[in-house]
Design a protein around this nucleic acid. Sequence first.
DNA 1: GTCTATAAACCGATAGAC
DNA 2: GTCTATCGGTTTATAGAC
Lengths: 203, 203
Amino acid sequence: MRDKRAIRDPEGTKKAILDGAESVFAERGFAGASIREIARRSGASGPLVLFHFHSKDELYRAVKERIVTSWSEGKGGAMPPEGTAENFIEDMIKTSFGFYRDNPNMVRMANWGRLEGDDAPWSGEEDIHKWYEKSIKEAQARGEIRDDISPLSVTVMICGAVHVWWEYHGHIEEHVKHGSYDMVSDEKYLKDLTSMVLRGLKP
Amino acid sequence: MRDKRAIRDPEGTKKAILDGAESVFAERGFAGASIREIARRSGASGPLVLFHFHSKDELYRAVKERIVTSWSEGKGGAMPPEGTAENFIEDMIKTSFGFYRDNPNMVRMANWGRLEGDDAPWSGEEDIHKWYEKSIKEAQARGEIRDDISPLSVTVMICGAVHVWWEYHGHIEEHVKHGSYDMVSDEKYLKDLTSMVLRGLKP
DNA sequence: GTCTATAAACCGATAGAC
DNA sequence: GTCTATCGGTTTATAGAC
C-alpha cells in the first residue's frame, strides 16, 4: 500500500497498481474485478490507475505480461537436465507440481482467462511443451517407455492430475470432510502420482 | 383472434428463462451474466425474469438445481455393476469421460463456481465418490490393485486427467496448431489413459 | 502525477398500467 | 403474467484543477 501523501512517484505507483490489479484479477477474474477495488488495494485513485494504464483491458494485459516475465526470469523456464526416461518423467511431474503450488495467481488468471474464452498459450508455455514432446518421443525410441501411448496423452494426463490437485484443493477437502476418502498430504499425492505414472509407462 | 390471456404461458416462460439463464451463466459465470442478456435470449423482459425468480441469486440456484435434477434423473447417477477391479477402473474412467463430454454446461458452471469461491460439492457427487472409495479399497484388499497408493490419489488422478482433456480442448488444440505434439482423438486419449492407469495400478 | 467531480452506460430491482 | 418506465447504485472512462 502506498504512502498516503500525494507525492509523485510514478514507478512506485505503477508497481503498486500492478500488485493490486494482480491480486484482484486473480481473485475475481476480468469481469468481476473493478478499477475502484484495484485503486483501493493499491492506494491510488481510480483515475490515476487509468492515467497510467489507459484502460482496464490494457491493465489486464500489463499484469499478465509482468507475471510471465517475472516467472521466466526466475528459474521457471529452466529445462530439466537430460537423463534416463524415469528421471525425466519424475522431474516433469515434480516441476509441474511445484509450478502450480508456487504460482497461484498465474494459475488462477489462466483459469479465469480460459473460461472467459482466451485459449492462447501463455508465453513460455510453448517451449516447455516442445521439450516435453521431444523427450517423450526420444525415450519411446530408446525403448525406455512404452510407445503405444501418444506423447500428448502422457503430457495431458500428467498436467491434468497435477492441475486438479491444486485447483480443487478446497473442493477435495470438502469431500474428505463429508466422509469420502482419507485425506492425503501434498507429498503423498506427488509420490502416488509419480509412482503410478512410472509404472503405467513401463514397456 | 385469441384472447390476450391465451398467449400467457407461465410454465413455458419459466422454461425459456431457465434455458436462457443456463446458457448465459455457463458462458459468462455469475458476475459476467446480466439479467438483460438472459431476458434477451429467453424472449422475455427483464422484469418478467425477476417476477418468476425474484432475484439473480435465486435464478442461479434454480438453474443449478434443474441441471442436477435432470442429470440424476437420467442414467447419470447410476452406479456401475460390480466386477473385477479392471472392469471397475475401466468403467470409472469411461463414465467420467462421458460425463464431461455430455454435460458441458454443468461442468462450466461448476468451474465458474469454484473460481467464484463455491467449494461445496454438487448434489449427487458425494454418493459417487463414496462408491469410488469403497470399490478401490475393496479391490486393494482383494489384492487386485496395488495398495501402496491412496484411493483419493487414484480418484483425483483419474478425474484430473479426464477433466483437463475436455476443459482444455481448445487450449490443447492451440498447442498442436503451434507445432507441439500430434493431435489425438477423444477415443485415443480415453484408450491411452485407461491403459496407462490399469498398468500403473497393477500390483 | 495526482486529485475531485462527473459523464455516459449498464447493473439489479421496483412501480404501476394492462 | 407481462409489459414500459424508471429508480438508485456501480461501472469504465474523461475533464479539469492543482
